[in-house]
Design a protein around this nucleic acid. Structure first.
Length: 504
RNA sequence: GGCAGGGUAGCUCAGCUGGUUAGAGCACGGCACUCAUAAUGCCGGGGUCGCGGGUUCGAGUCCCGCCCCUGCUACCA
């Protein structure tokens, strides 16, 4: 069984998660669920980034200890991911011992394999505590950081440990160009390639006298810079350096936001190369969620909270909307109006109503028992085409295309019903034809449940349940898509799958 | 400033190497059907394809200029 190790970015412990965080987790979850359907042994990692000065400050502002603060934040984030049915297999926090040990060991390995790659130097510049980084002139306006105009920039000069990033330029370019290391979508790859072509500077990888961090090996005055620390989480979670970590490593896919592609496509693989470790196979950088066409950020004040968005039509609806309408490649827009429209058209009147009318007919004309007829119908032909289109899209992580493909089967099934008119067959006593039609519809529902499950896992499970099949779709369900085993199932009229609120 | 990608119906987007009256979904209007969450099916209205030139028998589709948007431009989870 092929192994598939997928990760999301770990989130910063300095505020509640918003729709942008949710898009990333839901998108990665959709991919993870799809890989499981395809039979992969999936290991899906998420977690929290809990070091850095910003976290320390947030804790102080809230009158608590950093430890208590990150515990609180971790619970809050995890709670949201549970509500959104995110199926991660592990949850790593950078304050855990297993991570600390991995970070220290990775630095040791860099020292051992490439002793010149870590050296001591001076860094001088204006430091923004909000960004947790030194700012370049272009990022400063009126003496303040563009991102954090309320914070004072701190002139800082410190002796730090540096990482010789510059020497990995050629190797990284080769790996990307050869396809050995895939950076996608293409727009992000182009950016990284150009960045590499322009050449790399070394980076500082430690901070002086910042207590809330991982101690730099053999230097009591320094802690590991939060970014250098954070990236290593993907490796820590494999059990590194304990034997057997290669079962998971290298990662098959890092899912990240477009804003941090550079860290994942340049710094991170360079660190691994320096330590003599394998580099990840692929990075996917998704776009951002915009609110009414403008950037949604924690500082700009969130017009919509994640909790509200989940409550609007339930977690499955939000997942579907994020992946279908907002999208997992370029930036996309979120608005209540579009959310409601999609909900009504695609989910309530689309998938939900199709399930409802199909099973109502099985109940009314066959007492709920799905007929055993296995005759090929145009609907089966359409089903196969849908599966093919769906697979093509999902294999290249075109989640929007996958959802779109799956939902074409809803339209086809509705058309089939209209053309066959089972109520007419029943009235005229054409029992054999009615059996064929109802069985074909049941097969379509089964296929839809499987294809939709990465997007709307809860509702997909509910469809299976109503059909009389067991639970949420699995790999074996995927394997039976060619000829879904629905004959003889005892179905029941489902409760309304996607209820329409009066206000919509 | 440099580099990259965009600007196509009210909205979200398709339109490959240029070729009949520019497409889909949603939203909107009319008709049909009744199994269904007044759902579904059919028909229809709706677009100076950012602006201005040019190449060509013929250009959203190629070239030039301009306008606007987005991203990257080095340590922004």
């Amino acid at each position: 069984m092929p192994q598939f190790y997928i990760t999301t970015a770990i989130d910063y412990s300095n505020g509640d998660p918003h729709l942008g965080h949710a898009l990333e987790k839901v998108g990665a979850d959709c991919i993870a669920r799809y890989r499981r359907l395809r039979g992969d042994q999936v290991h899906f990692l998420m977690g929290m980034d809990e070091h850095s000065q910003a976290v320390l400050q947030a804790a102080e502002e809230n009158g608590t200890s950093p430890r208590a603060w990150v515990d609180l934040m971790a619970d809050r984030f995890a709670d949201f991911w549970n509500r959104l049915e995110v199926s991660n297999d592990d949850w790593i926090r950078t304050t855990e011992p297993r991570h600390r040990e991995a970070v220290i060991e990775l630095l040791r390995r860099i020292r051992r394999h490439n002793p010149d790659d870590l050296y001591v130097g001076d860094y001088e510049g204006l430091y923004c505590v909000g960004c947790e980084e030194f700012k370049q002139p272009a990022q400063i306006a009126d003496g303040r950081c563009i991102e954090h105009p309320t914070l004072e920039l701190v002139p800082t000069k410190e002796r730090n440990h540096f990482f010789r990033l510059s020497r990995y330029r050629d190797t990284l370019l080769d790996r990307i160009r050869s396809g050995e290391f895939r950076v996608e979508p293409a727009i992000r790859r182009n950016e990284i390639v150009r960045l590499l072509e322009d050449g790399l500077q070394d980076i500082s990888v430690s901070r002086h006298r910042l207590s809330w961090g991982i101690p730099f090996p053999d230097d009591a005055d320094q802690t590991v810079y939060v970014w250098f620390d954070a990236l290593i989480n993907y490796l820590s979670a494999t059990g590194f350096p304990a034997p057997g970590y290669q079962r998971l490593w290298p990662a098959d896919l890092h899912v990240v936001g477009k804003g941090i592609t550079r860290f994942h496509c340049v710094i991170w693989p360079a660190m691994l190369l320096a330590a003599g470790e394998a580099i990840p196979r692929q990075v996917w950088a998704h776009g951002y969620v915009q609110w009414e066409g403008t950037k949604m950020s924690k500082t700009a004040g969130t017009a919509v909270t994640l909790g509200e968005a989940i409550e609007r039509h339930g977690p499955d609806a939000l997942r579907y909307f994020l992946l279908r309408e907002v999208g997992f490649e370029a930036d996309g827009n979120f608005s209540w109006e579009r959310f409601d429209e999609r909900y009504t058209a695609d989910l309530a009147d689309g998938l939900g109503n199709l399930v409802s009318r199909s099973l109502a007919m099985v109940a009314k004309y066959r007492g709920g028992i799905v007929p055993a007829a296995r005759d090929e119908t145009p609907l089966d032909q359409a089903g196969r085409e849908t599966i093919s289109a769906f697979t093509h899209a999902m294999d290249i992580l075109d989640l929007r295309g996958g959802a779109e493909a799956a939902w074409t089967l809803v339209a086809t099934a509705n058309l089939y019903i209209q053309q066959v008119a089972p109520w007419k067959l029943a009235k005229e006593g054409r029992e054999a034809e009615l059996d064929i039609a109802l069985a074909a519809l049941a097969r379509a529902l089964y296929r839809l449940a499987v294809l939709a499950s990465p997007f709307v896992p809860g509702k997909a499970g509910a469809i299976c349940g109503s059909l009389g099949a067991s639970g949420e779709p699995t790999a074996s369900a995927w394997n039976s898509l060619a000829d879904p085993p629905v004959g003889g199932l005892v179905s029941s009229r489902p409760q309304v799958l996607f209820p329409k609120p009066a206000s919509v």
